[in-house]
Amino acid sequence: MVRWVPGTPDRLQHAALELFAARGYEQTTAAEIAQAVGLTERTFFRHFSDKREVLFHGQQSLTDAFVAGVAQAPEDASPIELGRSALRSASAFFPDDRRPYSRMRQSVIDDNPALREREAHKLVRLGRSLLDALTARGVDDLTADVVAQLSVTAFGIAFARWIRADEHRSFEDVATDVVRRVGDVARQLEP
Protein backbone atom coordinates (compact mmCIF):
# COMPACT_ATOMS: atom_id res chain seq x y z
CA MET A 1 0.00 0.00 0.00
CA VAL A 2 1.29 3.46 -0.93
CA ARG A 3 1.69 5.80 2.01
CA TRP A 4 0.39 9.33 1.88
CA VAL A 5 3.10 11.78 0.93
CA PRO A 6 2.56 15.53 1.19
CA GLY A 7 2.55 17.55 -2.01
CA THR A 8 0.97 14.86 -4.17
CA PRO A 9 -0.67 17.32 -6.61
CA ASP A 10 2.64 19.14 -7.10
CA ARG A 11 4.50 15.89 -7.64
CA LEU A 12 1.92 14.77 -10.18
CA GLN A 13 2.11 18.13 -11.97
CA HIS A 14 5.89 17.99 -12.28
CA ALA A 15 5.88 14.37 -13.43
CA ALA A 16 3.14 15.10 -15.97
CA LEU A 17 4.97 18.10 -17.37
CA GLU A 18 8.20 16.15 -17.76
CA LEU A 19 6.40 13.30 -19.50
CA PHE A 20 4.41 15.64 -21.73
CA ALA A 21 7.59 17.47 -22.73
CA ALA A 22 9.52 14.26 -23.39
CA ARG A 23 6.84 12.10 -25.01
CA GLY A 24 4.06 14.45 -26.00
CA TYR A 25 0.75 15.25 -24.36
CA GLU A 26 -1.32 12.83 -26.43
CA GLN A 27 1.15 9.97 -25.91
CA THR A 28 1.12 10.23 -22.09
CA THR A 29 -1.57 8.60 -19.95
CA ALA A 30 -2.79 9.46 -16.47
CA ALA A 31 -1.63 6.01 -15.33
CA GLU A 32 1.91 6.73 -16.56
CA ILE A 33 1.94 10.08 -14.75
CA ALA A 34 0.88 8.44 -11.49
CA GLN A 35 3.33 5.60 -11.95
CA ALA A 36 6.19 8.09 -12.45
CA VAL A 37 5.77 9.24 -8.84
CA GLY A 38 4.94 5.83 -7.38
CA LEU A 39 1.17 6.31 -7.21
CA THR A 40 -1.84 4.60 -8.71
CA GLU A 41 -4.04 5.94 -11.47
CA ARG A 42 -6.87 6.05 -8.95
CA THR A 43 -4.82 8.43 -6.79
CA PHE A 44 -4.22 10.62 -9.85
CA PHE A 45 -7.97 10.94 -10.38
CA ARG A 46 -8.50 11.90 -6.74
CA HIS A 47 -6.53 15.05 -7.47
CA PHE A 48 -7.32 15.80 -11.13
CA SER A 49 -10.40 15.17 -13.26
CA ASP A 50 -8.22 14.40 -16.30
CA LYS A 51 -4.64 14.78 -17.50
CA ARG A 52 -5.37 18.15 -19.05
CA GLU A 53 -6.22 19.61 -15.64
CA VAL A 54 -2.71 18.83 -14.41
CA LEU A 55 -1.53 21.74 -16.54
CA PHE A 56 -4.26 24.10 -15.37
CA HIS A 57 -4.28 23.33 -11.67
CA GLY A 58 -3.93 26.59 -9.78
CA GLN A 59 -6.03 28.62 -12.20
CA GLN A 60 -8.32 29.69 -9.38
CA SER A 61 -5.34 30.89 -7.34
CA LEU A 62 -4.27 33.14 -10.21
CA THR A 63 -7.79 34.51 -10.54
CA ASP A 64 -7.93 35.06 -6.78
CA ALA A 65 -4.66 37.01 -6.96
CA PHE A 66 -6.10 39.31 -9.65
CA VAL A 67 -9.30 39.89 -7.71
CA ALA A 68 -7.37 40.47 -4.47
CA GLY A 69 -5.34 43.15 -6.22
CA VAL A 70 -8.53 45.02 -7.07
CA ALA A 71 -9.91 44.60 -3.55
CA GLN A 72 -6.69 45.78 -1.90
CA ALA A 73 -6.27 48.90 -4.01
CA PRO A 74 -6.88 52.26 -2.31
CA GLU A 75 -10.49 53.49 -2.24
CA ASP A 76 -9.66 56.44 -4.51
CA ALA A 77 -7.87 54.32 -7.13
CA SER A 78 -8.85 55.02 -10.73
CA PRO A 79 -10.11 52.12 -12.85
CA ILE A 80 -6.75 51.73 -14.60
CA GLU A 81 -4.96 51.83 -11.23
CA LEU A 82 -7.24 48.96 -10.16
CA GLY A 83 -6.11 47.01 -13.22
CA ARG A 84 -2.45 47.71 -12.42
CA SER A 85 -3.03 46.64 -8.83
CA ALA A 86 -4.52 43.36 -10.09
CA LEU A 87 -1.44 42.75 -12.25
CA ARG A 88 0.94 43.55 -9.39
CA SER A 89 -0.92 41.14 -7.15
CA ALA A 90 -0.76 38.40 -9.79
CA SER A 91 2.98 38.97 -10.18
CA ALA A 92 3.54 37.18 -6.88
CA PHE A 93 2.18 34.06 -8.58
CA PHE A 94 5.27 34.02 -10.84
CA PRO A 95 8.47 34.03 -8.81
CA ASP A 96 11.70 33.72 -10.79
CA ASP A 97 12.23 30.11 -9.75
CA ARG A 98 8.93 29.20 -11.47
CA ARG A 99 10.14 30.45 -14.86
CA PRO A 100 11.66 27.12 -16.11
CA TYR A 101 8.46 25.27 -15.18
CA SER A 102 6.34 27.94 -16.89
CA ARG A 103 8.47 27.78 -20.04
CA MET A 104 8.11 24.02 -20.26
CA ARG A 105 4.38 24.18 -19.52
CA GLN A 106 3.81 26.76 -22.25
CA SER A 107 5.80 24.69 -24.71
CA VAL A 108 3.51 21.71 -24.06
CA ILE A 109 0.43 23.91 -24.44
CA ASP A 110 1.72 25.49 -27.65
CA ASP A 111 2.19 22.02 -29.18
CA ASN A 112 -1.46 20.98 -28.67
CA PRO A 113 -4.49 22.76 -30.17
CA ALA A 114 -6.89 21.54 -27.45
CA LEU A 115 -4.58 22.82 -24.73
CA ARG A 116 -4.21 26.18 -26.50
CA GLU A 117 -8.00 26.42 -26.54
CA ARG A 118 -8.15 25.60 -22.82
CA GLU A 119 -5.51 28.28 -22.12
CA ALA A 120 -7.53 30.85 -24.08
CA HIS A 121 -10.65 29.89 -22.13
CA LYS A 122 -8.69 30.42 -18.90
CA LEU A 123 -7.89 33.98 -19.93
CA VAL A 124 -11.54 34.66 -20.82
CA ARG A 125 -12.61 33.47 -17.37
CA LEU A 126 -9.90 35.60 -15.79
CA GLY A 127 -11.21 38.64 -17.66
CA ARG A 128 -14.77 37.97 -16.48
CA SER A 129 -13.65 37.67 -12.88
CA LEU A 130 -11.68 40.89 -13.16
CA LEU A 131 -14.69 42.61 -14.76
CA ASP A 132 -16.87 41.49 -11.85
CA ALA A 133 -14.32 42.74 -9.31
CA LEU A 134 -14.10 46.12 -11.05
CA THR A 135 -17.87 46.59 -11.22
CA ALA A 136 -18.10 45.60 -7.55
CA ARG A 137 -15.75 48.52 -6.89
CA GLY A 138 -18.20 50.85 -8.64
CA VAL A 139 -16.52 51.08 -12.05
CA ASP A 140 -19.10 51.55 -14.83
CA ASP A 141 -19.66 48.55 -17.13
CA LEU A 142 -17.89 49.87 -20.23
CA THR A 143 -14.85 51.16 -18.37
CA ALA A 144 -14.66 47.95 -16.33
CA ASP A 145 -14.79 45.87 -19.51
CA VAL A 146 -12.03 47.92 -21.17
CA VAL A 147 -9.80 47.79 -18.08
CA ALA A 148 -10.40 44.05 -17.57
CA GLN A 149 -9.58 43.26 -21.21
CA LEU A 150 -6.52 45.50 -21.23
CA SER A 151 -5.28 43.98 -17.97
CA VAL A 152 -5.70 40.41 -19.21
CA THR A 153 -4.05 41.30 -22.52
CA ALA A 154 -1.17 42.96 -20.68
CA PHE A 155 -0.89 39.87 -18.48
CA GLY A 156 -0.73 37.59 -21.53
CA ILE A 157 1.93 39.71 -23.22
CA ALA A 158 3.94 40.00 -19.99
CA PHE A 159 3.79 36.25 -19.42
CA ALA A 160 4.91 35.48 -22.98
CA ARG A 161 7.85 37.88 -22.59
CA TRP A 162 8.73 36.66 -19.07
CA ILE A 163 9.19 33.07 -20.28
CA ARG A 164 11.39 34.01 -23.26
CA ALA A 165 14.87 32.50 -23.06
CA ASP A 166 16.54 35.92 -23.17
CA GLU A 167 14.37 37.45 -20.41
CA HIS A 168 15.78 37.72 -16.89
CA ARG A 169 13.68 40.47 -15.29
CA SER A 170 11.04 39.64 -12.69
CA PHE A 171 7.48 39.10 -13.82
CA GLU A 172 6.46 42.32 -12.08
CA ASP A 173 9.14 44.31 -13.95
CA VAL A 174 8.07 42.82 -17.27
CA ALA A 175 4.39 43.48 -16.51
CA THR A 176 5.16 47.08 -15.51
CA ASP A 177 6.96 47.62 -18.81
CA VAL A 178 4.03 46.14 -20.76
CA VAL A 179 1.49 48.29 -18.90
CA ARG A 180 3.58 51.39 -19.63
CA ARG A 181 3.62 50.46 -23.32
CA VAL A 182 -0.16 49.87 -23.32
CA GLY A 183 -0.57 53.38 -21.88
CA ASP A 184 1.69 54.86 -24.56
CA VAL A 185 -0.27 53.15 -27.34
CA ALA A 186 -3.65 54.05 -25.82
CA ARG A 187 -2.72 57.74 -25.71
CA GLN A 188 -2.09 57.59 -29.46
CA LEU A 189 -5.72 56.48 -29.97
CA GLU A 190 -7.07 59.80 -28.71
CA PRO A 191 -8.70 61.85 -31.52
Rank of each mutant, 00 (worst) to 15 (best):
1 M>S: 15
5 V>F: 07
7 G>V: 12
8 T>G: 10
10 D>K: 15
15 A>N: 03
20 F>V: 08
22 A>M: 03
23 R>I: 07
34 A>Q: 08
36 A>N: 07
40 T>E: 14
40 T>C: 10
41 E>A: 12
45 F>W: 11
48 F>I: 07
50 D>G: 08
54 V>I: 08
54 V>A: 09
55 L>S: 09
62 L>N: 00
63 T>S: 12
64 D>V: 11
64 D>M: 04
69 G>S: 08
74 P>I: 07
74 P>F: 15
78 S>L: 13
80 I>F: 14
80 I>V: 10
80 I>W: 13
80 I>L: 14
82 L>D: 02
83 G>F: 02
85 S>T: 11
87 L>I: 04
92 A>W: 08
93 F>H: 01
94 F>C: 11
97 D>I: 05
97 D>V: 01
98 R>H: 15
103 R>W: 03
104 M>W: 00
105 R>S: 04
108 V>I: 03
108 V>E: 03
111 D>S: 15
111 D>Y: 05
116 R>S: 12
118 R>A: 15
120 A>V: 05
123 L>H: 11
123 L>Q: 05
123 L>V: 11
124 V>S: 05
130 L>H: 04
130 L>M: 11
137 R>E: 08
140 D>Y: 10
141 D>N: 08
141 D>F: 15
143 T>A: 10
147 V>L: 06
147 V>P: 00
148 A>P: 08
163 I>W: 06
171 F>R: 09
172 E>G: 14
179 V>R: 08
181 R>I: 07
182 V>D: 11
188 Q>G: 03
189 L>W: 12
191 P>H: 13
